[in-house]
Structures are given as C-alpha cells and as structure tokens.
Amino acid sequence: MSNIKEFDCRPVSQEGAESPMAWTHQHHESRPAGPNPGVRIAEKAFLGHLILRGGAIVLDEAVRDVLGIALPGRPNTMTQNDAGTHSVQWLGPDEWLVIVPGGEEFELEAKLRKALGDAHFSIVNVSGGQTVLTLSGTNAREVLMKSVVYDVHPSAFPVGKGVTTVFAKATAIIRRPAEDHWELVVRRSFADYTYRWLLDAAAEYGVTQERA
C-alpha cells in the first residue's frame, strides 16, 4: 500500500453543485430546437475522472481486477463495460483516463491503490477539472469535421477510438463510444468556449441542447 493520504473531494451532498457548464447555462438562453434537429448536445456532468499513470502491464492487472475492464493496449483506443458506464482510455504510453459514474471515483482510487501495492504508479482524481459533452444525431460528424483537425471519417475513427486533439482553438479528448455517439472530454476552463462553439457550428443542422 502506497503511503499516500487520500481524501474524498466530492461533497456529501450534491445540492448546489455546479458543473463547468453552469456559467454558460446561466448566461445563454437555450435556443428553441427546430422540427428535426440534426445534432443533440448534452452534458454528462459530475462523473468521476481518474488519471492513471504507470507501466501498462502492472496497471492492466489492477484495472482488470478492480473494474473488470482491460486496459486498452493499443494507442488511441478506449475500452468500456457493456453498459457503457465505466471506461478506460489510452492518453499516452504511460497514461490512461478512467471515467466512472459520479461518486464511485474515490472508492475506485482506494481499491486501485490497494491492488497496485508498492508498484510505481500515480493516480490523480481530476473529476473537478473536466467534464464530458456528448454529441449525437445524424449530423454530429459534420459538426466535428468543422471543429477538429483529426480525421473523423468512420474508416479512420471507428467505434472505440479516442484521441486527444485540437478542437477549434482549444484542446479536447474526442472519443466514440458508440456508432452515432461522440463524447468530448473538455477542460473546465474550455467548457464554455467548446460548448458555444458546438452550438454555433451545429446551428445550420438544427440543434437541441439537453440540460441537466
């Protein structure tokens, strides 16, 4: 067991909690959706995000034991459970992003630390630092084509892929957990910019915003 002081940074009560989108929602009226919106934008707020760093072989064993998901072995891929609630994404040769339902991250961190023992690793809880935006609908890919330099054609970006790349003038992690469903993991400070960029880019296809 590593000699690290752990504390749960999630408040006991979620009352009054604000996601990184809160400011945007307060300052911008939701636009009325057209009859046949081509793009749906939603936020998956308050999820648990952990950054795992260390050797792939050691981490893989621990993540399999604790989460029941294999660590993605190939670069720019992600693995998830059948329900799609828990996912592990490759960010670098020694870095992975784990996203779990909100409230589970602290327990998961403790379990992983126990499973990893004295191995050389690092786990950082970054739940407060980033949020997940989801993009779906028939024109979701067109919106991404306008926004990122990465090739999002299905032949280059199959389901289960995830890359960190340039989004507009900011940075985002773009992943494709399902056929017609994209996720953007954005930094807290870029959330407003990214969200409003998405609304602007998606305006021509008709866009609905789902607010929590």
């Binding site: 670069p75 720019n76 330099v149 890359v163 790349t165 340039v166």
Partner: peptide
C-alpha cells in the same frame, strides 16, 4: 512514434 499514426502539425 508513440501514438503510432500520422497527426497534424498543429498538434
């Protein structure tokens, strides 16, 4: 060589 693919110069 780490991502194992070609990426844009901008990155």
């Amino acid at each position: 060589p780490y991502c194992d693919e070609y990426r844009e110069e901008e990155e």
